[in-house]
């Protein structure tokens, strides 16, 4: 079998998919990044290799997510793309004709507006993380319920209570207050979903024309309570694609297919990278008053990339596409 790898290294989770040449997803792996992106990518690749039949050929690799450059250098990616483009590409394939993409991940949330199959507008939360996966995670932990059960419990609510949604701090204190007043757990959770949807639409979706078909993806789309709250708020059907939680990786795989069809060959270093020792380190450059934090990546003791300097003194020593800033 021949196919493409898509790797999405997000703040909270790392997603890896294997897609065959016709665009069918064969394997999808979802791991927690836990602050160690390189080791997580290596772990994911080991797992993927185990699951895939032997004799398989990787024709191209794409990386995305906030850790895309690092992952791209580690595996030898053919394309390194931002997550907005990756999500849009994946969605257009899975839901033809999609006009609005709601994506809520661990640390960020975005809205992507497509018209005629082309991204026409997008927005990403800039200064507020209320309503993202991390906050839901944290609240589930505080209430001692597994985050997977969150949506199910919220759906049982008969009359959701009102929770402040502008700020995670306000939301939490409101939740605690309502809980101490004796409101039911399901009503509080449903109220929180409503609040987060309100915050998303006001903060991220402001000024955008939300038209059907609407696709909801990202880790938070697993939460039935959130799906329901979006349905109520928008008055539109919400579609959750089958690979909703790995869409970024699907997009990266698709983009790598596009790149490789142009370049002809892949830069993939092979599954052997799982045994290679990668080491990152940083130092403060004292060349000028900017005092840049320069980060370097070593592969088996050889430095293969540096980034973080404003002037290019350190990063320019390496090939252009391996540069980060």
């Amino acid at each position: 079998m021949k196919g493409y790898l898509g790797i999405d290294v997000g703040s909270v989770s790392t997603k890896i998919v294997f897609m065959d040449e016709s665009g069918v997803i064969h394997e999808a792996i979802y791991l927690r990044t836990q602050g160690i992106p390189i080791a997580t990518v290596q772990k994911g690749l080991t797992e993927l290799k185990k699951r895939l039949p032997s004799g398989l050929k990787v024709r191209g690799v794409g990386t995305t997510g906030s850790g895309r450059y690092l992952a791209g250098i580690v595996v030898g990616a053919d394309t390194v793309k931002n997550e907005i483009t990756a999500h849009a590409v994946a969605s257009s394939l899975q839901v033809p004709g999609v006009q609005t993409i709601i994506e809520i991940g661990g640390q960020d949330s975005k809205i992507i507006i497509l018209r005629n199959g082309v991204v026409s507008d997008f927005a990403m939360n800039t200064v507020c993380a209320a309503g993202t996966g991390s906050f839901l995670d944290q609240q589930a932990a505080r209430l001692n319920i597994p985050v997977e059960k969150f949506g199910e419990i919220a759906l049982r609510s008969q009359s959701p209570v009102r929770i402040a949604g502008r700020c995670a701090v306000f939301a939490e204190s409101d939740m605690i207050h309502k809980q101490q007043m004796g409101c039911g757990l399901s009503d509080i959770l449903a109220g929180l979903c409503d609040a987060l949807v309100r915050n998303y639409l006001n903060n991220v979706g402001k000024g955008k024309e939300i038209l059907a078909p609407v696709v909801f993806q990202g880790g938070v789309a697993a939460n039935a309570g959130m799906i329901n709250a979006f349905k109520k708020a928008l008055g539109l059907a919400i579609q959750v694609p089958p690979y909703f939680d790995v869409m970024g990786a699907v997009g990266a795989a698709l983009l790598s297919r596009e790149t490789v069809s142009r370049t002809g060959s892949s830069r993939f270093k092979g599954f052997g990278v799982t045994d290679t020792e990668f080491k990152t380190g940083s130092f403060e450059c004292s060349g000028c008053s900017n005092l840049c934090e320069v980060v370097q990546l070593a592969e088996d003791g050889n430095i293969i990339a540096r980034w973080g300097d404003r002037c290019g003194k350190w990063s320019n020593a390496f090939a252009e596409q391996e540069k980060i800033s």
Binding site: S66, K81, N82, E83, I84, T85, V118, V119, S120, D121, F122, M124, T126, V127, S325
Partner: peptide, 27 residues
């Protein structure tokens, strides 16, 4: 729209700019 504050991590800004330029090119 890009809002600036104390943050010095550039990844967020670069991601948004890259996506924005992708959008403009495709358009």
């Amino acid at each position: 729209t890009l809002i600036m504050d104390e943050h010095t991590g550039k990844t967020g800004i670069i991601t948004r700019l890259e996506a924005f330029i992708d959008l403009l090119e495709r358009k």
